[in-house]
Each structure stands twice: as C-alpha cells, then as structure tokens.
C-alpha cells in the first residue's frame, strides 16, 4: 500500500463494499447490542476503519458532517471531501457527527428531529476504545429480552430515549467493529 493521501483509502469496489457495510449497519441498528464488523475503507487517523466505512456508506453531498474534536484535521477533511463530497458543518446543523464521546460534547446541541418529521435528526458516530456486549442493559424494539452493550455514558442516552420519538441515533465504532443504539432503546445502568 502506498503512502496515505486524500485520494487513497476509499472503497475498492464502491457498490459492493457499501452494500456489505450497510447490511452490517442496518443489522446493528435493527438489533441494538449486536456487534458487527465493517471494512473497506482506510481513513486517515484518528478515524477508525468502522467510522470511515460508515461515512463512506452513508454520507454524500446531501449530508452535513460534523467533525468533532481531534477528528477535525486537514487530512480527514480532504479525505471526506474527495470520497463523499459531504460538507463539513457545526454540530447544530449536522446530519452525521463523528468523534469520541467527550469530543462530541453535549447531546442537546444536535438535531433531534421535529414532531412531524422525527427522522430529521442527527446520527452520531461515537469512536470508542472498547466495544463489548457488557455493561448497560438495553431493552426495546429489536431486542429479545435484554441485551448488553458497553456504552460510554448512561444518563445522556437515557435522556435521549425520553425524547422518543425524537432524539439522536448512535453508532459506536472501535477498530472495525460497529454497534448501534437507536433512540427507541430503553437503557438501564446494570442488568
């Protein structure tokens, strides 16, 4: 592999790679607590493979992307612009946001949709150092009984779930692993 440039690190076969990545993303969104792997992209640091692959799969000139904290580098901006054409925006307008939980900041600054169009809300891609089926107990649509997922916070996600049917939706990424937490999921600290 040659040195990383803004032109490298995209999908080798965009329709097929994106189809595989979307199936994984859809599966974890439909089954909160499940963990899948996604691959196909080689994004510049500090983006993980999973976060980069989700951005390539879901973002294009129609979606505003917020690069939070350390992810907002020239290399990431150029890579994102070349491969997706997505405009970079601040948190309040973003369709997608990517960064660590600390970098993403207060949830209240993101779009949560409107009562008549709850789909017009942000999807946050939360970079994690660890992603396991342990910790917070999840229940709700997509879950048979109870599922467990290592969430970076509890009360913030509980606050988001209270807004239902409004609220943000989350992907958690760690290396090439991805999990998701839709707003419909109820969260308990221990299970």
């Amino acid at each position: 592999m040659s040195a990383q440039t803004q032109f490298s690190g995209g999908f080798q076969n965009a329709p097929i790679d994106a189809a595989h990545a979307f199936r994984a993303a859809m599966t974890v969104m439909a089954r909160p607590g499940e963990i899948r792997t996604v691959s196909g992209s080689e994004p510049p640091a500090p983006l993980s493979v999973a976060a980069g692959t989700l951005l390539l799969t879901l973002c294009d000139p129609e979606t505003k992307v917020h690069l939070a904290g350390a992810t907002d580098t020239d290399a990431v901006r150029q890579w994102l612009a070349f491969h997706t054409g997505a405009p970079v925006s601040d948190a309040t307008e973003a369709n997608f946001a990517v960064g660590t939980w600390q970098e993403l900041g207060l949830l209240s600054q993101y779009r949560i949709g409107t009562a008549e169009y709850p789909d017009r809300s942000a999807t946050l891609i939360v970079e994690c150092t660890d992603l396991r089926q342990a910790g917070a107990a999840l229940s709700g649509p997509g879950i048979r009984g109870t599922a467990h997922l290592s969430l970076p916070d509890i009360s913030a996600f509980q606050g988001n779930a209270v807004l239902y049917p409004l609220g943000c939706d989350f992907f958690f990424t760690c290396g090439d692993k991805v999990a998701a937490l839709p707003r419909s999921t109820q969260i308990r600290a221990e299970g």
Binding site: P15, A18, A19, F22, A25, M26, M29, A30, T57, L58, C59, D60, E62, T63, N95, P118, D119, S121, T123, P141, G142, Y164, P165, D169, P182, R183, S184
Partner: peptide, 15 residues
Amino acid sequence: KRMIRRAILKGLAVP
C-alpha cells in the same frame, strides 16, 4: 442507494 439507506436506518430507529 445512500439516500434510501439513510431512510431505512431512521425508519428502524423510529419503528
């Protein structure tokens, strides 16, 4: 497809 996929994800989040 990306537009449809984004709609599917939001649909799954708000059953």
